[in-house]
Amino acid sequence: MSELAMGREVDRSKMTVSDEVAVEITNMNKWFGTFHVLRDINLTVQRGERIVIAGPSGSGKSTLIRCINALEEHQQGRIVVDGTVLSSDLKNIDKIRSEVGMVFQHFNLFPHLTILENCTLAPIWVRKTPKREAEETAMHFLEKVKIPEQADKYPGQLSGGQQQRVAIARSLCMRPRIMLFDEPTSALDPEMIKEVLDTMIQLAEEGMTMLCVTHEMGFARQVANRVIFMDQGQIVEQNEPEEFFNNPQSERTKLFLSQILGH
């Protein structure tokens, strides 16, 4: 795994966790048909927290964060995002989605729009920002992810790492208060993982509330303030990264860690 990816010291001065609750999930259950994917999930995320969710494939970790912005519907329990209770009302869902940014494994950029248009689409149509202002914001964030010179290209002309950084910038343009990352580096060549992780670290340094599903344990060690381990749709163990990696409690966690860190 790319613990090598961290080339610099992480600046922790702004990484403060406040008492304010960003996401609260209580007794949440979800089924795909008859298959019980998420079982009794309880999770409270404070504003400013950086949470890494790890676990074997099929353990429900992606499904969990996709429930937070209602890309998946949960059948039981309660999810409160930024003070708004997630219900099946469409207006309510669109409101939450515009406050919660999401970055996908396969980027999901819009291939028929330029990089700049990808970044301004939602601000213009959802936030009703004037076009000029939206473009300024977009250029600001494209500079932040270090690809302002690609603004007029199409996603198909960029490398995977660049596309993922655009995807992060696109989410940031909506000025979200929470960012969800669904395996953001899993579809990337090893050479490109670092540039995306650097962008994510930068985001964490600015105090963004982040929930990341990732296998990048180096990132978890350095940036996360909490690591959650999931298996078979349940939260099996959660702890501070130092404790989690050095002193795992459950057998399942030990096995998982030995498999992904063992070579």
Binding site: G101, A122, R170, S171, M174
Partner: peptide
Amino acid sequence: EGADSLGL
């Protein structure tokens, strides 16, 4: 999903 996640 990309469109949904942006609140469109």
